[in-house]
């Protein structure tokens, strides 16, 4: 009885937290099942309406109607997925290799290279956005998937994380691999990569969502409708007030935009758990 009481407080607190996080999502979900006029009146319905199919069809096929129409969600989801994948995979590949170089090789300028990478941590996309834009335009990458993703790939955070992880790998593995005759790339592929799998999975989730949520850079570097990403597209659908917003379609779009990151998290969770239960020593 006493135990039950003492766990009541924490549970109520947790419940409150869940409510705070879940309510906006619930309202969006419900909103996406009503027609435009219900939401337009300013009501916040709490029970599902009957317009789900048409709203989602509108979002998926046409991307809304009227002044603020954007590309259909199908197109934008594809663009966002490609962009987020390119960014996540690109970042992981680049940072694995650079961390490998910094940790396992002695070359002149090694620490300079490391500190240069480290310093870029202090310069997020927003700070270097004008020079980056200049570079991308002069490289003729404006309005292209390459222009969208390449500037976001260089990553100090992931390099640092991998560096820290590589530093925990015992030297004896390196030496055993040398005795076995494994060259540097072979060691990387056969030993370092398999040992890094859980780290890679964790980073992949974080970086995929990071890429998915990019707003400012895609807004600047792409104005071609066919390359529009869903985060930018959704924002474009919200007008400044001179015409009525199609909130029902916007909300359907928002729900659709949630699905891929959620899928990535759920899918990758298996790897996390695997990593947690099978701790590598």
């Amino acid at each position: 009885m006493k135990r039950w009481l003492s766990s009541l407080g924490p549970h109520l607190w947790l419940l409150l937290g869940v409510l705070v996080f879940a309510t906006p999502i619930y309202i969006t979900l419900i909103g996406s099942t009503h027609d435009a006029s219900t939401i337009g009146r300013g009501d916040v319905p709490l029970l599902p309406g009957s317009h789900a199919v048409e709203n989602y069809t509108a979002a998926w096929v046409s991307g809304g109607s009227g002044r603020f129409a954007v590309s259909p969600a199908s197109r934008m989801l594809l663009n966002s997925t490609i962009m987020a994948l390119c960014i996540a995979v690109g970042k992981i590949v680049i940072s694995l290799l650079s961390a490998y170089a910094v940790v396992f090789f002695r070359f002149p300028g090694r620490m300079i290279a490391f500190w240069t990478i480290f310093m870029t941590l202090m310069l997020p996309v927003e700070v270097r956005i004008i020079p980056t834009y200049q570079v991308i335009v002069s490289m003729d990458l404006f309005n292209s998937m390459a222009g969208l993703t390449i500037p976001l790939i260089a990553s100090a955070t992931a390099t640092l994380l991998f560096r820290q992880f590589f530093l925990t790998i015992p030297d004896e593995y390196v030496e055993a691999a040398k005795m076995d005759g494994a060259g540097p790339m072979r060691f990387f592929r056969d030993i370092l990569l398999p040992l890094s799998v859980t780290n890679i999975a964790a980073l992949f989730v974080i970086l995929f969502i990071y890429g998915w949520n990019q707003y400012l850079w895609p807004l600047l570097v792409v104005n071609d409708r066919s390359l529009e990403t869903i985060v930018v597209g959704m924002a474009k659908m919200i007008g400044t007030g001179e015409a009525q917003n199609e909130w029902n379609v916007i909300m359907a779009m928002a729900v659709l935009s949630l699905l891929p990151p959620v899928a990535v998290v759920i899918f990758m969770q298996r790897w996390f758990l695997k990593g947690l239960t099978e701790t590598e020593k």
């Binding site: 015992p170 004896e172 593995y173 030496e175 055993a176 040398k178 005795m179 076995d180 005759g181 494994a182 056969d190 030993i191 398999p194 040992l195 590598e280 020593k281």
Partner: peptide, 20 residues
């Protein structure tokens, strides 16, 4: 010569077995 070319084998203190 590289270690692998010396035709030797080594047993390490912590065994250095590849964990995966």
């Amino acid at each position: 010569l590289e270690p692998a070319e010396r035709d030797i084998a080594m047993v390490f203190q912590n065994y250095a077995l590849y964990p995966h």
